[in-house]
């Protein structure tokens, strides 16, 4: 464990907790893409399959359970909670996210390190996570008024994988100099997808004005 990875995990955890608190406190999920939340549940389920098989550390197991639990909780709130689900804007959240799941799965079948069940799903989860934010970003572009909590949530979610990039550089030089193209490139693409958002988010923060993404 290194500072970059711990910072990345804490940023990721903070983003999810922030979203959960926003939904619970305001009893609203306006501006949040259910599709991105569903994609994240698929990402965590396909990545944390080894949860009960391989024990790395208490931290690792605990965080996996927290990520799985909170992401499913958020989807439950948005789909089934009697009040919150009324605030979900279905006809704005239009991204066909199954057009992301299938290609990522096919790509994982073609490009992976070992052809084993766990490895294929792990690789699939990396590919899917790199594009999982797209429905949310598309929804933000349509939103005329992005509330601060939603903007901060997306910012933290994007920042966590950026911190992981530093973690991979650190591990490359301090551990075994192994090249890991699949997580590295997936993480790079994932972070690159946020650059546009990061620019407008930081600018709105500097100019103390409302966050607005160009349509």
């Amino acid at each position: 464990m290194n500072a970059f990875r711990l910072a990345g995990d804490m940023t990721h955890l903070l983003s999810i907790i922030l979203l959960l608190l926003k939904i619970r406190a305001t009893k609203s999920c306006a501006g949040i893409s259910l599709k991105t939340q569903e994609l994240y549940v698929i990402v965590f389920m396909s990545r944390y399959l080894d949860l009960f098989r391989t024990y790395y550390s208490l931290y690792n197991s605990l965080m996996k359970i927290i990520f799985l639990g909170t992401s499913m909780c958020i989807v439950w709130y948005m789909r089934s909670h009697k009040v919150v689900r009324q605030t979900y804007n279905n006809d704005e959240d239009t991204f066909r996210h199954f057009f992301l799941v299938l290609p990522c799965f096919v790509l994982a079948l073609l490009v992976h390190r070992n052809f084993t069940f766990i490895e294929i799903l792990w690789t699939f989860s990396l590919y899917l996570e790199s594009v999982a934010i797209l429905p949310q970003l598309v929804l933000l572009q349509k939103s005329s008024n992005i509330d601060n909590l939603t903007g901060t949530y997306v910012f933290l979610l994007g920042a966590y994988r950026g911190l992981y990039l530093f973690n991979w550089v650190y591990r490359f030089f301090t551990e075994n100099h192994r090249v890991r193209w699949i997580p590295w490139l997936s993480g790079l693409i994932q972070t690159a997808i946020y650059t546009d958002f990061f620019y407008y988010y930081i600018r709105s923060w500097k100019n103390r004005e409302k966050l607005k993404l160009p349509a």
Binding site: R5, R113, W168
Partner: peptide
């Protein structure tokens, strides 16, 4: 081996 392939990460 498990250590190196980043599976110990989240």
């Amino acid at each position: 081996q498990a250590k190196t392939d980043l599976k110990d990460e989240l």
